[in-house]
Design a protein around this nucleic acid. Sequence first.
DNA 1: TCTGTCCTGCCGACCATATGGTCGGTAACC
DNA 2: GGTTACCGACCATATGGTCGGCAGGACAGA
Lengths: 199, 199
Amino acid sequence: MSAPVRDTARTRRLVLDAAAELVAAQGVGVSLDVIARHAGVSKSGLLHHFRSREQLLVALAEDLLAQFAAAVDAAVDLADHGPGRLVRAYVRAVFDDLRPEQVVPEHIVLSTALAAVPGVPDLLRADALRWREAFVADGLDPQRVLLITSAADGAAVSGVYEGSVDPARLEHVRELLLALSRGEGPLVPGLASGAPHQV
Amino acid sequence: MSAPVRDTARTRRLVLDAAAELVAAQGVGVSLDVIARHAGVSKSGLLHHFRSREQLLVALAEDLLAQFAAAVDAAVDLADHGPGRLVRAYVRAVFDDLRPEQVVPEHIVLSTALAAVPGVPDLLRADALRWREAFVADGLDPQRVLLITSAADGAAVSGVYEGSVDPARLEHVRELLLALSRGEGPLVPGLASGAPHQV
DNA sequence: TCTGTCCTGCCGACCATATGGTCGGTAACC
DNA sequence: GGTTACCGACCATATGGTCGGCAGGACAGA
């Protein structure tokens, strides 16, 4: 029953979690030693599992993307069968991630922090493409999807970086986006969907 | 007529521009020496104008925030007198910043990159507050404003980090947001503005 | 069940280097 | 002539990464 002292999977998890927390708080500048100590491992131990700093950061990015995808999956409402159910799950996942008690930082935030790491931009691109395809399969008007997800992402970023946004405001945007994902009329009265408007 | 060889303001500008470009491309990790060389100055010269690395980054954040505010000001349509004119200018400024030929990086992007620098979060908070007040004075429904600006910011972030988003898609969101800022009906059919909806 | 052996997770000590910052000096502008 | 923008040389330190070694655990054979 006692946890094994040596367990590769467990140690990697520990390191990745520590790295996520520290990078979110202090940026990519954190030293390997600090991350290692925070994870309860020596720097050498860390380097044993991640051959270099860069590799650790790439692994972190992959892990966060996967965690977020899992969160969206978990947020899918099983009773919901209409088009846009995935978009709704996306919105829920993003905003639940923003709740103060949530420790795991939002994927967008971490992604932006890691975007300067070689290799990570490719990951982000591939991930974005995957989402786009999933949303197409979700059956909602692509325009609407782009608007909703952009707004969710933007709210996430501001929420984290622009200081504590009033939770009630966030909650309101959340509800608004969910409602938008269900609305069937044109987004804007007088604006035909699909026909760009002239300014 | 010859430009002065020694000009504090000019040198600071050169350094800040170089810093903005390099930080956007490589993250906050860039060394002072690289920034200095890129600006055509020695590291000592740089340090003469910015007493420390941290001070340089804070100054950079301030500068970018100011540049963006100026861009929004410049994007105000003088013939537009309805509520939401500032929001429309904001949207235009954000999306114009996203155009490929634009060198100056978007404020949100740089802000996120700099958010880990001590002192910068306070700047961001103050800036966000200032914007919120300005939007209140702009006279548009706050809900709508939050939705529109969040979406603009989110589109900006994805545009930069998730790889080249199809320009046509971006353009479409831009038009959609502008239209949204003019729409007078409820955002979502059946959802009364101001009354949060139950999921 | 005990023992020996191999694999490997993990560590401390060490190294090379990059980088932030200091200092004294030079010369351009007032 | 004084102020100061700017430079080259230098220093202290932090950090990424290497290396040799220790020991925990799985497994084989007795």
